[in-house]
Structure formats: C-alpha cells, structure tokens
Measured scan of single mutants.
Amino acid sequence: DAPDEFRDPLMDTLMTDPVRLPSGTIMDRSIILRHLLNSPTDPFNRQTLTESMLEPVPELKEQIQAWMR
C-alpha cells in the first residue's frame, strides 16, 4: 500500500498530481477539480477555493513517481 502522505485525503487513492490548497491540505488535482465543479470551496474548511489557488507540489509528485517504479 502507498504511504499515507501519497494518498488523497478525500478519496484515499494514490495521488498522481498533488496540489496544495491554501489551507495547507495536499490533494490530487483531479479530485479537487471534480469537487470544485460542484462547490467552489475547500472541502475541509468550506473557504472559497478556485483552481487558480491550487499550488503544485512537484517534490511530492517526484517522490510518488519514484515509489511507483
């Protein structure tokens, strides 16, 4: 099983494109984008959230890719 820090906190699946929300939570980009289609909010604190506020986490993405090899 993947380490917890590699798993999306909402869907508990392996992240492939991790992004940091303004709240500091790291999620998979595809999952948070799907959530934003229904509700333009951070799913953990209900603060306003837009796609432009998502910050890529390239170092975590590299760690996940290395773990998958």
Rank of each mutant, 00 (worst) to 15 (best):
D1N: 14
A2G: 07
A2S: 09
A2D: 05
A2C: 15
A2R: 05
A2I: 15
A2F: 15
P3F: 05
P3Q: 05
P3S: 04
P3Y: 05
E5L: 12
E5S: 11
E5T: 10
E5G: 10
F6P: 15
F6E: 01
F6L: 05
F6C: 06
R7G: 03
R7D: 02
R7W: 10
R7H: 07
D8T: 03
D8R: 02
D8E: 03
D8P: 03
D8K: 06
D8G: 02
P9E: 04
P9S: 07
P9G: 07
L10K: 05
L10G: 02
L10V: 09
L10I: 11
L10W: 10
L10M: 11
M11T: 13
M11D: 10
M11R: 08
M11H: 10
M11K: 09
D12R: 15
D12P: 03
D12A: 12
T13Y: 07
T13H: 07
T13F: 07
L14F: 07
L14C: 08
L14R: 03
M15Q: 01
M15R: 01
M15C: 05
M15G: 02
T16W: 11
T16D: 09
D17C: 08
D17R: 03
D17F: 06
D17P: 01
D17T: 03
D17G: 02
D17E: 08
P18K: 02
P18V: 03
P18S: 01
V19M: 09
V19G: 01
V19P: 02
V19S: 01
V19I: 06
R20K: 10
R20N: 01
L21W: 03
L21D: 01
L21Y: 01
P22N: 02
P22H: 03
S23G: 09
S23Q: 04
S23W: 05
S23P: 01
G24C: 06
G24V: 02
T25A: 13
T25L: 13
T25G: 06
T25W: 13
T25C: 12
T25H: 13
T25Y: 15
I26T: 05
I26K: 01
I26S: 00
M27Q: 02
M27C: 08
D28F: 10
D28Q: 07
D28E: 11
D28T: 02
D28S: 04
R29I: 06
S30K: 13
S30V: 12
S30F: 10
S30W: 12
S30P: 11
S30M: 12
I31T: 12
I31G: 04
I31W: 07
I31Y: 06
I31F: 05
I31A: 09
I32L: 06
I32T: 00
I32E: 01
I32C: 04
L33Y: 07
L33T: 09
R34G: 11
R34K: 14
H35E: 07
H35Q: 06
H35A: 06
L36K: 00
L36S: 00
L36G: 00
L36Q: 00
L36R: 00
L37Y: 10
N38I: 13
N38E: 13
N38Y: 14
N38C: 14
S39I: 07
S39V: 08
S39L: 06
S39D: 13
S39N: 11
S39A: 08
T41D: 07
T41V: 09
T41F: 14
D42S: 03
D42P: 03
D42G: 03
D42C: 06
D42W: 04
D42M: 01
D42V: 00
P43S: 02
P43V: 03
P43N: 02
P43M: 03
F44C: 06
F44M: 06
F44K: 04
F44S: 03
N45F: 07
N45E: 06
N45W: 06
N45C: 07
R46S: 15
R46P: 06
R46V: 07
R46G: 15
R46I: 06
R46W: 13
Q47E: 13
Q47D: 13
T48G: 11
T48M: 14
T48H: 15
T48Y: 15
L49T: 04
L49G: 00
L49D: 00
T50E: 11
E51M: 10
E51W: 10
E51S: 11
E51D: 08
E51N: 07
E51I: 13
S52P: 08
S52W: 12
S52E: 15
S52D: 15
M53P: 01
M53A: 07
M53D: 12
L54R: 01
L54N: 01
E55M: 12
E55R: 11
E55I: 14
E55C: 08
P56H: 07
P56Y: 08
P56N: 10
P56A: 11
P56M: 08
P56D: 14
V57I: 09
V57Q: 09
V57T: 05
V57H: 07
V57N: 05
V57D: 06
P58L: 10
E59M: 11
E59Q: 10
E59N: 09
E59V: 09
E59C: 10
E59K: 12
L60E: 01
L60A: 00
L60W: 03
K61S: 08
K61M: 09
K61Y: 11
K61R: 14
K61F: 10
E62C: 12
E62R: 13
E62M: 12
E62L: 13
E62F: 11
Q63I: 11
Q63P: 00
Q63H: 08
Q63K: 15
I64Y: 04
Q65P: 07
Q65R: 12
Q65Y: 13
A66Y: 09
A66H: 12
W67P: 05
W67G: 07
W67N: 08
W67E: 07
W67T: 05
M68H: 15
M68I: 15
M68P: 08
M68R: 08
M68W: 14
R69T: 14
R69S: 14
R69A: 14
R69K: 15
R69W: 11
R69N: 14
R69C: 15
R69H: 14
